[in-house]
Amino acid sequence: MKTAVTGPLSPGIPQRSTLALVTLFLCPGLLIYTVFMVWPVAQAAMFSFFDWNGFGWPADFTGLRNFVSVLNDPLFWKAFGNNLYLIVFMMATVVPVALGLSVVIARRIPFAITFRLIFFLPYVLADLTAGLIWRYLLDGDYGMLSGVSLFGLDEAYVLANPQLALTAVAVVMVWKSFGFHLILFVAGLQQIDHSLYEAAEIDGAGPFQKLTRITIPLLAPTIALSGFFVVISSIQAFDMIMAMTTGGPSRSTSTMVHYLYADGIASMRIGFGSAIGVVIFFITLAFSATYRKLSGRYA
């Protein structure tokens, strides 16, 4: 801490002007942040107690009825279940794939930079773009599976099949994000002290032992971080759903945010939609807190 210069009594700056300075530097940011971020979230909490179509001022106070409606709605639980499925699917695929590839790519292999570049490429695309590309590729008439008989079906209309659509969405989410997680792991691997591997080799450890006894335990914080991003991005899933399936068929790919869109925004039920938003907020909070606590034990 540079107490000599960070204090209000820095040379040349009289003390009384500190308050003015702080105000000048902080105000623009704090104002925008408060008005367009904190205030709307607080208002969501308030609106959720009213039945309101967005015109005039909310007057029809209904207490917790909106929350009861949300939590009694099978469509909400359908969406919630789909979110859970996305989390589990991504955890089971993205994390091991990215970890495995990062260990491989950190070795001295030709074109390592090119590979990293290619793997990261889908991550900079919009979810919407990735979703549309795969909606085309998975189209039963024109996509890459057209004419292919899959699982005994005549034509593979993957996204029209309630049993397959959500998995297809999950696969595209993996396709889009594994390169990002890979970079996280590459950065984590660079933190590991190489003398550990040399010591292990002298003790006769094979590549598998080095992986399970050194790499994975020392990467635990990165694995936890990667899993955290999986949880957050899966809970927020929306754009890709809109591009691929718009939540269908028969809500088989609806997520909580899609439910908010379809049953709150599209029908201008401000109170009900705000209640969904508040529920999403608390679920996100609960998931990240639980996840942090669980992973904190190992990281």
Binding site: M37, W39, P40, V41, Q43, A44, F47, I235, Q236, F238, M256, V257, L260, G264, I265, I270, G273, S274, G277, V278, I280, F281, T284
Partner: peptide, 8 residues
């Protein structure tokens, strides 16, 4: 989450 703030 953006979703929470979007209606307000």
């Amino acid at each position: 989450p953006t979703a929470t703030a979007i209606l307000p």
